[in-house]
């Protein structure tokens, strides 16, 4: 549904200096997929999303959404979009903002009150309906931002840019549930975030962006699992810790007495655990020290994050 072919975007300053924010990016995203975009600050994530929404044009390459120029797609179908920057006129009330944006989203007049009620209930912002936006806390403002994106439930492209920024842990978890319910075979959901744990939980694939390029695309969801190849683990043994160390060459003991195992894939991990148990170890805990996504991220951005 989304196809980027050698897409680049350059910015030119008044003095003629050129900065390439996105550099020769190619990527395809199929309908039904949830794609994450991760990267350090200034990596090009926001520019990539701006081009996907038709706010910016690529200076080179082609970008198509459902075979259309992004701006044409947005004008024809609209996009459920939560921007990183919550910029709405602050004198608007929550109610007014949602009614206005629902009207622009072309929600039929007869269905509009129900659509607003639905998102107000979903995001639990009922007590704030009459408040001006400037009176809201950052987290509540963010919930209004998410609510306006959900006013229509037939959008085929959903774009979240740092969607849980400012949300408390309860609403961060609630947001993940909402995204899970939004999955549809004909819909693409794109989530840009610094939060790798969040991306790992909700996405099928994560594109790691740095210095304007997609450095790596990591499969994280479903069958890929949390502990895909080359993840590191911390193992705690109630007894027989020597057997664990012996089963994993290169393993080290932490100050707490746990055993840190370097990057191993799942078959190696299971074989090692079996050997340790056979050698008399009583394993109490196995914890991934960092996920495959974290490992891939560190490797892709060279420690820049």
């Amino acid at each position: 549904m989304i196809a980027l072919r050698s897409v680049s975007r350059e910015y030119r300053s008044l003095v003629g200096r050129t900065v390439r924010a996105v550099d020769d990016v190619s990527l395809e995203v199929a309908a039904g997929e949830v794609l994450g975009i991760a990267g350090p600050n200034g990596a090009g994530k926001t520019t990539l999303l701006a081009m996907l929404l038709g706010f910016l044009r690529p200076t080179a390459g082609t970008l198509r959404v459902d075979g259309m120029e992004p701006r044409a797609f947005v004008e024809a179908h609209g996009v459920a979009y939560v921007p990183e920057l919550m910029a709405l006129p602050l004198h608007w009330t929550v109610e007014n903002a949602l009614h206005r944006l629902a009207t622009l989203a072309d929600v039929p007049a007869a269905e509009l009150p129900a659509a607003v009620d639905r998102v107000v209930e979903l995001l639990a912002i009922g007590e704030h309906r009459g408040k001006r936006l400037k009176a809201l806390s950052k987290g509540n403002f963010q919930r209004v931002g998410i609510a306006q994106a959900l006013l229509r439930d037939d959008m085929r492209l959903v774009v979240f840019d740092e969607p849980t920024h400012g949300l408390d842990p309860v609403w961060t978890a609630r947001f993940r549930e909402i995204v899970a319910t939004m999955r549809r075979p004909d819909r693409v959901i794109v989530v840009a975030s610094h939060n790798l744990d969040e991306l790992e939980r909700i996405c099928d694939r994560v594109a790691i962006v740095d210095r304007g390029k997609i450095q790596r695309v990591v499969a994280v969801g479903g069958t890929a699992g949390v502990a895909s190849p080359a993840a590191a683990y911390r193992i705690r043994a109630a007894a027989g810790s020597d057997a664990v160390v012996a089963a994993f060459p290169g393993a080290t003991r932490s100050t707490s007495g746990d055993i840190d195992v370097g990057a191993v894939d799942l078959p190696t991990l299971n074989a090692g655990l079996a050997a340790a148990i056979a050698g008399g170890a009583l394993i109490s805990t196995v914890i991934p020290r960092e996920s495959a996504l974290e490992t891939a991220f560190r490797s892709a951005v060279g420690g820049a994050a």
Binding site: G54, H77, G78, Y81, P83, L88, P89, L101, L104
Partner: peptide, 9 residues
């Protein structure tokens, strides 16, 4: 504001 206004159709 363009980000909100013009993500709509």
């Amino acid at each position: 504001h363009v980000r909100f206004l013009f993500s709509k159709p």
